[in-house]
Write a protein that binds this DNA or RNA. Structure first.
Length: 197
DNA sequence: GTAGGGATAATCT
DNA sequence: GATTATCCCTACG
């Protein structure tokens, strides 16, 4: 592994700051099948008093890793088909996290394509379920420590000068009016373009 | 390009 | 039994 961000990075920021700060950084998975990585270009924040947040109605078996210390992974299964990957934020006992919604593929594009069964670079990792499949992220990584790997985040020089757009979150029925989705302006790998504002 | 629905299963009521 | 932080395929303009 090259330079995984340290635990202190995750602890030093609140959830919204972390969601913005992760844009332009690189998510890396050093798996048994090979190395894959991608630039984070879209995130969403889920806050503890937010009705759309899994943790807002208390701790359950499913969401328990959301209550770990900042810098752990929260991976869950949705719609009977897909995994979603989150970066846990805030201190132990506080259920907040940042959902990673899309990546721009960097290393291991061939492996991603093989895992996904498609070859269109744009569709490889543009969506939370898609990127988990491409990166080989599943329930085994739930609760893992992002500062130790094999799944981790590192800096990328492209973070500098990045413009961030704030807009509404996707795929939820509650908390729709909150602008807690963040994306890299002008990047074509985001899962959906913002509609109005 | 947009809209609709099916797949598919853990979780919660 | 309903809901769900999704994806993909098909049909229709």
């Amino acid at each position: 592994m090259k330079q995984a961000l340290e635990e202190s990075f995750y602890k030093s920021l609140c959830t919204i700051e972390l969601a913005k700060s992760l844009l332009g950084k690189r998510l890396v998975h050093d798996s048994e099948q090979g190395m894959t990585s991608g630039l984070i270009v879209e995130t969403e924040a889920y806050l503890r008093y937010d009705p759309a947040c899994h943790a807002s109605r208390g701790r359950t078996n499913r969401n328990s890793s959301m209550f770990l210390d900042a810098g752990h992974a929260y991976v869950y299964f949705v719609y009977g088909n897909h995994f979603c990957f989150n970066v846990v934020s805030e201190g132990q006992g506080i259920g907040e996290a940042v959902l990673i919604r899309s990546l721009e593929p960097q290393q291991g594009v061939e492996l991603m394509a093989a895992r996904r069964g498609i070859f269109d670079r744009i569709l490889l990792t543009s969506g939370p379920g898609r990127l988990c499949k491409a990166m080989g992220i599943d329930k085994k990584l739930d609760g893992s420590r992002l500062w130790q790997g094999p799944l981790y985040v590192e800096n990328d020089e492209r973070e500098a000068g990045l413009s961030i757009i704030e807009t509404f979150r996707i795929g939820i029925s509650q908390g729709k009016d909150l602008k807690l989705r963040f994306l890299a302006e002008g990047n074509s790998f985001v899962s959906r373009r913002p509609v109005n504002e």
